[in-house]
Amino acid sequence: MKLRTLLSLCAGASLSMLTACASTQPAQDMSDYDPIEPVNRIVHGVNGAVDFMILYPAAMWYRDIAPEEVKTAVSSFVRNIGEPINALNSLFQGEPEQAAASAQRFIMNSTIGFLGFNDVAADFGIPYHSEDFGQTLGHYGFGGGPYIVLPLLGPSNLRDSAGIAADYVMNPLTWAGKNSDTVDNLYLGSLGVTALDARYRALNQLNELEQTSIDYYAALRSLYRQQRNAVIRNGAAPTAPDVEDESASFDFDDAVEAAAE
């Protein structure tokens, strides 16, 4: 079965399960609800081994060897690849102006910005804004559901796992590469660059968390919950104490202290 077909099926199945969870407890914070923790810990361990052997050394090499200009260009390219998804999800959330800005950024940076390696849109006063389908579901009140550790992708929950699959299926770049081996290879290559850039940017944060945590798995779970709640609120304060976004805005030091306890 091809990867595209598999992800499409996963998206449908995950969204169906998410709807069932939302119908019973639509607004409660279940991000720390971990009913399959033994399995999650095994996947977490496998992910850690892959990270130790591949991603971490690559990120360290990238940090020490690559010039700052290259790092900036790669980060800009990675952000540009996600602009179509940012635009679609902004539109789904009822933010047409933000959707138009993301679309405009993609067009400008993909052309005069040389495939996004230069963020010329920012120079014209169009700031970057990230949105994904997990955030869209959270925007409409869907709770996170059970915590899940995805192979290679890491911490997630039922809602955000559905969001990852849905974003993949919705991404115009996914379907642009379906009938073109060249575009498909470029897109797959961009996923590798995205993973490298993400691991590089998380180096200090994850190193500190691992070194100061009694239980790194639990600390990472708490960190993920806080980060996702913060991005779903888009920086706004929680509106009520019993909704999923009840956590205070993300604070790394608080996450470390909570893990240590």
Rank of each mutant, 00 (worst) to 15 (best):
E257Q: 14
Y187T: 10
S14I: 07
H129C: 13
S249A: 14
T182L: 11
L150V: 06
R221W: 00
A176P: 03
F77N: 02
A49E: 06
L186N: 11
A202M: 13
G189L: 04
D132C: 10
S14P: 04
W61V: 15
A255V: 15
C10A: 12
P151H: 04
L196I: 02
V70E: 01
L15Q: 02
A121G: 11
C21L: 13
R105A: 08
I42V: 15
A202N: 12
L173P: 08
E246L: 09
T24F: 12
T174I: 03
G125L: 04
A198E: 10
R79L: 07
K71M: 02
A20T: 14
A87W: 09
P172T: 06
E131P: 02
V43E: 00
N109Q: 08
G145F: 01
I85T: 14
Q93S: 10
L15T: 02
D51G: 08
M170A: 15
S180F: 11
D184W: 12
N86G: 08
A11Y: 02
Y168G: 04
D251M: 02
R199Q: 08
A218V: 09
N157Y: 03
I36V: 15
S222G: 11
Q98K: 14
E244G: 15
P155E: 03
M170N: 09
E97V: 14
V46I: 15
G125P: 10
L203N: 02
Y187E: 05
D254S: 14
L186M: 14
D32N: 10
F92N: 06
L158M: 13
L220G: 02
A240I: 09
L191W: 06
I107T: 12
L3M: 09
G177H: 04
A230P: 00
Q25D: 15
T24D: 05
D253M: 06
S8E: 13
E257L: 10
G163Q: 00
D197H: 02
L206W: 00
L150S: 02
L209R: 04
L152Q: 04
F142P: 06
A176I: 11
W61L: 14
T239H: 06
P35Y: 01
T174Q: 05
D242V: 01
R228H: 07
A260F: 08
N185C: 08
C21Q: 12
V231P: 07
F106Y: 13
R41G: 03
T24L: 12
V43A: 07
F92E: 05
A20Y: 09
S8V: 08
S180H: 12
L153H: 01
F250M: 05
P57Y: 00
D119S: 10
A259R: 00
Q226P: 01
F52G: 11
T194I: 00
I42D: 10
A101P: 01
Q205A: 11
W175K: 06
E95A: 13
D253C: 00
D132K: 03
Y168V: 06
S110L: 01
A165T: 06
S247L: 15
R228D: 09
G177I: 07
P155Y: 03
E37H: 04
F133R: 01
E244R: 10
D184M: 09
A255G: 05
A218L: 11
P96W: 05
Q28N: 10
D160V: 03
S249T: 13
N109T: 08
